[in-house]
Design a binder for these strands. Structure first.
Lengths: 253, 253
DNA sequence: CGGGGCTTTGATGTGCTTCAAGAACGGTGG
DNA sequence: CCACCGTTCTTGAAGCACATCAAAGCCCCG
């Protein structure tokens, strides 16, 4: 099978209970990735090991709300080429009905992850009953739609290096923690191969670009599966769409 | 200014009144691109000349339902590269809120077109009041979400020739008419440049690929802005995602 | 400590891009 | 009706970014 790429941490409390840190001044941070309690309670919480697959059948339509970890939607559009068409982070709503009928379409966990499974009809009903929930769902789906278009733009016109920078910014914002000054460290939630397939690059090429960025001091790696930037601004300067990504992945509202 | 690339046709009756032909056996075809009457009546119908721009401001959120023609959503993610991130055909719902904050983001008509402008809140209210309308809106938005992911897969892993074949299939299904046997003819609703920017290819390269397909007898062109295939199946054989595209652009339910 | 998966790096190949020139087309006005 | 003009399209030659192939290194795990 596949090895556990990431160490298990804090296994006793459910992952979705783990909250963001508070600001120094004591004002609690409003977390944009928070999942409404009603949704969690109306669904079934499912823990996922890395590489575990989730059903995408659309009869008795189910959706998944990601409470922790990273999921990916991959496909084999042509016999020779895998493409990861979407990434899902904490707070995202995964609706299999939004996935096209492509060969080899699969929804799998990239890291250890946790989702809440809930029938779409039920989520719709909750949204109909509560304006707050409706707003949450609408904001969530809108952001995800925006991310997909931004990704089209990224793989369409950016160079390999720019694409990788874009993804690293995304990961730093999504699964990273801010450190001293402008430094950030984050889990590499995707393997090199997955990163390559997401950015439509070759794994070899991706590795080369990564090495180049490391040489230039833009990013560093500590062991497998972990990376850091001492200068997040410098990383952002490498991506022409940095501002767009920041607006789409900001964790605070 | 820009020239009118396409001859005006049937100017006296509104474009959205023009319906599909009936099947030989007399059974009316159920048109998947039909727009519910309630929606048309609740909004304002707007005619568009080629290259005309539509507002994408999101205060007082408006959406556009395309009743005729082709619209495109383009952007300038990097100073050197334009990317058309989405295409909209008859029946599509264009929601500016789904467009990311990319530099140079613009919604413009590619051909002569017609849209119905309606506040999002109103469309939501209509959908809340009528299950039929809710189903229509949901189906429409789902299909469009699927198309975006399919497009990521296409520009991600397909070769130039495969991408072009994919787009031609899409156009043949969307804006084309079936002819004798397996032949189809259709408007080239996009200029070469636009096609290139949609498929993330260079315009020169696209022209070359087009010439190659012409030499091989897969497609033919009659004047500018018009194309045909005598063998639609052969065209489909050129695209690994032909089946996906067919499922997403079939005009009949 | 030895095996398998993932990653890195080098040498080489190729599909696409770039640059540049010319052809075809559509519209305009004599 | 035809000569003219701007735009779009086509085609060639040269170059580059990325892909492919191959071999070695790393790391975790049994």
């Amino acid at each position: 099978m596949t090895r556990m790429r990431f160490p298990a941490r804090d296994p006793e409390t459910p992952m979705h209970k783990q909250t963001l840190a508070e600001r120094p001044d004591g004002v609690p941070v409003k977390d944009a990735t928070e999942i409404p309690r009603d949704v969690v309670e109306a669904g079934v919480t499912i823990g996922l090991r890395p590489r575990q697959r989730l059903s995408m059948s659309i009869d008795e339509e189910m959706v998944y709300v990601v409470t922790a970890g990273v999921l990916l939607l991959d496909s084999l559009p042509s016999p020779s080429g895998r493409q990861i068409v979407d990434l899902f982070y904490r707070g995202d709503v995964v609706r299999p009905k939004y996935a096209p009928l492509l060969p080899g379409m699969n929804l799998i966990a990239s890291t250890r992850a946790e989702v809440v499974r809930i029938p779409w009809r039920k989520l719709e009903a909750l949204s109909d009953a509560s304006p707050v929930l409706r707003e949450w769902l609408d904001r969530q789906l809108s952001r995800q739609a925006q991310r997909r278009l931004a990704h089209i733009a990224a793989i369409g016109v950016l160079t390999g290096e720019e694409r990788l920078a874009t993804l690293l910014i995304e990961l730093a914002l999504r699964v990273g923690e801010a450190g001293f000054e402008d430094s950030r460290s984050f889990d590499m939630a995707l393997s090199r191969t997955d990163m390559a397939d997401y950015l439509s690059l070759n794994a070899d090429t991706l590795s080369r670009i990564m090495s180049r960025l490391r040489q230039q001091g833009v990013v560093g790696t500590s062991g497998r599966g972990r990376a850091y930037t001492s200068n997040f601004k410098a990383l952002c300067a490498r991506s022409p769409v940095a501002e767009t990504i920041k607006s789409l992945h900001a964790r605070t509202v």
